[in-house]
Design a protein around this nucleic acid. Sequence first.
DNA 1: CTTTGTAATTGATAAAACGCAATTTGAAAA
DNA 2: TTTTCAAATTGCGTTTTATCAATTACAAAG
Lengths: 233, 233
Amino acid sequence: MKIEVIDEAWQQARRCESCGIRELVLFADLNKADFDLIHHPITELEFKTNEYLFKAGDQADYVYTLRSGLIKLVKFTDDGRQRIVRLLSQGDLVGIEALDNQPYAHYAEVLDTALVCRIPIVEIESISQRSPRLYRQLMARWSKVAMDADFWIEELSSGSAQARVVHLLLYLASLSKKDEFYLPSREDMGAMLAITTETASRIIARLRSEGILRVLGTNQALADERSLRSLVQ
Amino acid sequence: MKIEVIDEAWQQARRCESCGIRELVLFADLNKADFDLIHHPITELEFKTNEYLFKAGDQADYVYTLRSGLIKLVKFTDDGRQRIVRLLSQGDLVGIEALDNQPYAHYAEVLDTALVCRIPIVEIESISQRSPRLYRQLMARWSKVAMDADFWIEELSSGSAQARVVHLLLYLASLSKKDEFYLPSREDMGAMLAITTETASRIIARLRSEGILRVLGTNQALADERSLRSLVQ
DNA sequence: CTTTGTAATTGATAAAACGCAATTTGAAAA
DNA sequence: TTTTCAAATTGCGTTTTATCAATTACAAAG
């Protein structure tokens, strides 16, 4: 029994050690002794576009490390409209409020196929008490949430509709490792920027006609980032 | 030497124990053993209206527990305009990004006389490693930052200018223990809601003429919250 | 009590964004 | 290939908000 548990931990450690984005994840700098403290399995899962990880109000037993893909966090207002309050990409924690034993605060829907590691939160509290490495990782994750929120308020929820769209495009481009990047539906753009679908569409159309933006397949685009930046100076 | 340190810790513990808002502060449920781990003094400070605790980019050696008062966190945009991204009130941590060894991310200016406890961040890391109580408090503080940011995006940065103002007034009223609450300058309202000073002024003027809002002395007002709520249903 | 300077208000107009109603486009299914 | 259907685009009138320019109000200083 004990042997099995330790064996399990070792296996977990080896799997996490060989993780392709090891330096980005929550367990980035844990050592073997840290992994020995893990007793519940960490599962790798894939969620496809339009699937969701959880709804607002769901009991939060897991936090997810996002290995790849793109996820939107959505709040529904009283009148049924939706407001997207954050985007999560590689390395982010999905459902971080679980660490505070809160139910999930958002509807977390996949925009671009998401590969995640599902981590039981019971593990985190115990390990972070013994590992200053995990403690520091947690602070870094929370801190990033705060910085992302500031960005959302300052750049995506202020200024003219065009400035917001441009900031969003630059942001999406920065999240992508390739030249092309994820281009949301106009409806999602509206929900991210607090503008209407039509206004988002008009601005995208204008950028296309000006040759600053090229729309490729579904939800993919290329942009001349220099020109974009000049539009918001 | 050692004796002195312990004595200091005890004094600290006794001071924190008798804190009027003990249940609200970061060290809420620390015990004597926890306080023994504190070696740098925690200082109580007062900042008056218009004074600031730190500027964006300052090296962050302290985090502040706000005992009373109101503080705005400001980001300055490239073009010199300012955007207020959060308000902090009783029980909040000011400069929480210090926990991630980041420089301060905002200009933190006092709106209403602030009584704070200044906590050296070197203490926090060491204590949180030994005290699950402090660990849980930290998670709760970070979690509140995320929830506050969501609120700022969903309620104060979406919808019509009037809806934003009304949500702001309801929020300010909820922060106050008295009937009257802090009414920001129209310029600050604009910076909080991403609207112009004039638009904020016009909406406040209308609410006053409709008898829903009564402006008292400087930066104080009374509102009929029921009517306010009906305006945003 | 008067002066003084900043903040708030108000009016007029321009600009931006919305809302609604067609079209048009384009990807997936048949 | 054709069909189908949702998403995107576009036109246009309306509404909201921004902008600019006076005034007015008011609190602090003299």
